[in-house]
Each structure stands twice: as C-alpha cells, then as structure tokens.
Design a protein around this nucleic acid. Sequence first.
DNA 1: AACCCCCGGATTGTCGACAATCTGTTGACA
DNA 2: TGTCAACAGATTGTCGACAATCCGGGGGTT
Lengths: 204, 204
Amino acid sequence: MTAAQIARDVIDRLESGGFAPGQRLVEADLCLRYAAGRQIIREALQHLNALGIVALEPNRGAHVVHVSREDAIMTLELTELLFGLVSRSAARRIAAGADASRLDAAIDELMQSSQSDDRALYMRARRHLFGALSQIAGNAELSRIMDQVRVHAMRAQFGFADFRKGHAQELAEIGHTVMAGDSANAEEQARKYVRSIREALQQL
Amino acid sequence: MTAAQIARDVIDRLESGGFAPGQRLVEADLCLRYAAGRQIIREALQHLNALGIVALEPNRGAHVVHVSREDAIMTLELTELLFGLVSRSAARRIAAGADASRLDAAIDELMQSSQSDDRALYMRARRHLFGALSQIAGNAELSRIMDQVRVHAMRAQFGFADFRKGHAQELAEIGHTVMAGDSANAEEQARKYVRSIREALQQL
DNA sequence: AACCCCCGGATTGTCGACAATCTGTTGACA
DNA sequence: TGTCAACAGATTGTCGACAATCCGGGGGTT
C-alpha cells in the first residue's frame, strides 16, 4: 500500500467516523493496520499534516485535529467561494467547447449511488463530481485547493443526519447548469447549495 | 536544518530565481547543499509536492513545476477572492475588538523594508503582513490555504519588473483600512490590488 | 542505417537498527 | 501528605545500507 492510499483511507475513516477527532495516530499501530513500513506511514502522516487534518508535534506524534463549530462555519464560507468559482469557470469552459463527458458520467454515478445504501459509494461519486468540475475548470491550482477544502468541508458537515437524497438532486442540478454553460446561474446555485448547509449548521 | 526550513529556503530561491522551473531536484545534491540526511530532504520535497510547487514522479525524482501564463492568471483570480475574504474577515474581527498590534507592526516592517535594497527582507515583511491578516481573520483553514496560494501568486508574478515601492504603499493602505475595521472597503481594496496585478499580467 | 536487447551508472524506494525525546511512575525526602 | 528527581517504557527522529527502478549507450542483427 502506498502512502497516498493510506492517507486516502484515513480520510475515508474520518468521514465515516472510524477515527475520532483528537485521537492519537501512533506510527507502530498504523504499521500493523496497513502492513506497511514506518517510512510509508510517516509519509502518509506528513501528507495529512499538510492537508491540515492531522497535527504533528515534534517528538510527540500525530493526532487528528479537532474541528470546532466556528471552524466548520468558516470552512463552509470558504467552500462557498471556491465551489462557486469552480462552477462558474467550468460552465464558461463548457460554453467555450470543453469536453463535458466526464461531468455527465459523474452526474449519473451520483444519482445511481444516491439510491444505494452504500455510503462510501456515494462519497466517491461526490468526489468524482467535484473532480470533474475542477478538471473542466482547467486550473491545477484551483483543483488542488478544492480537493483540500472539500475534505475539510466534509468534516465540517460530519454528524449531520442523512444529507444524501436531497443533496444529490441539488448537486445534479448544479451539474446540469454547468453543462448548459450557464456560468452565472451555475455559480449562484453552487453558492446557494453550500450556503444552505452552512446556515443549517449555524442554527444548531 | 529541519525539513520545514529547507522547504522554506527552496521557496525563497524560487521567488528569487535561484531555482528554475523544470529544474530537477536530486536528493543527493540537496543533501550536500543543506548538509542534511536524505530522510530530511525527502520530507521537504514531499512538503513542496503537497504545496504543488514540485512534481514528484515515482522512481523519477522531483522537479520544479512550470507555471504557464494561464495558470498564473487563474491563480491570481483565486488570490483575488481569497485575499478579499481574508481582508474582510480581519476587518470585521478588528471592529469586534480583536488585537491589531501584530498587523500594525507588520505594516511598519513592510514600509521600512520597502526602502531597503534587500529583496529578501521585503519578501519576509510581505509574508508577515499576510500572516497577520490571516491570523486576525481567525480561521486556521483559511490561513493554511492563503499560505499556499500566496506562494503560487508570488511565482505567478515572478519576472515582473520592480513592483516594490508602489505596491508596498498600496498594501499598507489595505492594512490601515483593515485596522479601521472597514470590512467592505478592505475587501474591495484588497481585490483591486490583486486585480490590477492580474490585468497587468494579462496585457503582456 | 535502423532497430532491438542488454548492461552499467545514477537515482529513488524501503528496511532495520539505534539514538533522542517524551510520559507516567516510583520512591525518597521535607 | 506534597513535591521533586530519577528511572523505565513507549514513541518518534535519523542514519546507513541495500534493493528496485530508470535512463542512456554499446553492440549485434537485419
């Protein structure tokens, strides 16, 4: 197993509650769990540290960082901006003739997975949708940032009740607006989508 | 020397032209340059990879990624949004009573260093100013993202003629608006500042 | 000359061992 | 009983060595 795969798995476990905030991540334990050498584990931990998911104190080891509600709200504020920008850029690109097939496929995948009970499947479909949007938007830097922020946004939402069916529908609609090349509406819909999540979180 | 310090130094060299885009970064060479073990060097390279500054191909080593003009322009688009958000948030926080002393000090440092001929000094002062703004804005996630994007924004501007004196003045004014707690104007000034750089770049 | 196989040098990837550091506990002492 | 220092166990940090992989060149064949 490579360091990137391990980091990915840790993130998945965070999103599904397998690792708790504040939990210590001891290298030796992870070595056993993933049957990997310490080198690989350290690499993965440093990657997670760069993503801001894990804190790495010298000689003290790694632990999952805690996300306060204020953090969550501000992360969603940031997500609103970025998701809006990505959607607008992608729509503009498509209007200019960019290939939309990957986005189309991602929308299908999302709608199908939202019917299933497999949460991991849905999460992956979601990732693919955002990935397709980022890719179409055509800026590597923006994609990179979006990837990072999305993980934090997922953590910010963690614990919410079932946000699946309705949100899948809403996301699909955003995808369709992007495919239609309507950049202004795509941005507004994307921002509204994130905003509604943030406001729900604020009223808790 | 720690991995973080080495990564910092590599970034500085990029900003001052010491490392060229596309240049290979061979571990053994860096070991000699920084008198460090390979472990440390690899750590630094992975950190730079996470920042999107160097590409890391398996078994092929690391090289400095190339920044196309389109990339630079879209990075500055992103920077405009983020710098605006940071400035607005910081101003709001200060209006609500947050401590502004660090920002005040950073503005002084910037103005002083802009008189000097030491480019590295000016760059550090700039970093401190943005750091102070991020810190006052009060969201760790946003700070993290800003740190990353700022490095890319610097690279995007690289090669520009002397952008120091006028820009230092403009940055200081933004800082003062933030300290006055005027969030709307702070955001607009910050965005305008980045926008003017982007537009100058577009007309090349 | 064009093509392909194979090899040597250079470089990266991984492992095991040891040193450095931290944490909690024990026991002496006021 | 409360405090402090030393110790033991656990954990992280670093080094050196070796294995795996890639790249360019040499020689043979068609």
